[in-house]
Amino acid sequence: MSDKRVLVVDDSATMRRIVINTLKTIGYTNVVEAADGKEALGQIYPNNIDFVITDWNMPNMSGIELTKAIRNDGNYSHIPVLIVTTRGIKEDIVEALRAKVNGYIVKPFTPQVLKDKIDQIMKTTTQ
């Protein structure tokens, strides 16, 4: 069991549920959810979030805008962000990397891919 607190951001209730269920199976039970980037920003401080998993296309604030907002905030710029999206062309991936995401997952994904990415990010960000 991990004590890390994860914020799952997606406008699709189905995807939030799938990500949360997968997180539970790999030991992350401390999970908070938000339906868009704007709501997510409001959740980071009160919930002391350690890790963000976000969709890209969302109303109010996209996952890329959320990542940029996190990176530009001195208090939270260290929080790892993993983007989970249907967008899988080169230009999109490069745009996300330029926005400083720590990992990129293309839907549909397997639980193993999510686990590997989280492990990889945790390893590199705690070094």
């Binding site: 406008d11 996209s62 999206t85 967008r87 899988g88 990129y104 549909p108």
Partner: peptide
Amino acid sequence: STFDAEAEYNRSGDKQNLADALSEQHR
């Protein structure tokens, strides 16, 4: 901007491989 008009259900893993390769090069 709230949806991806090109979204597709594709389990080939090609897009994930591309994302991994670009992420690795970036890292």
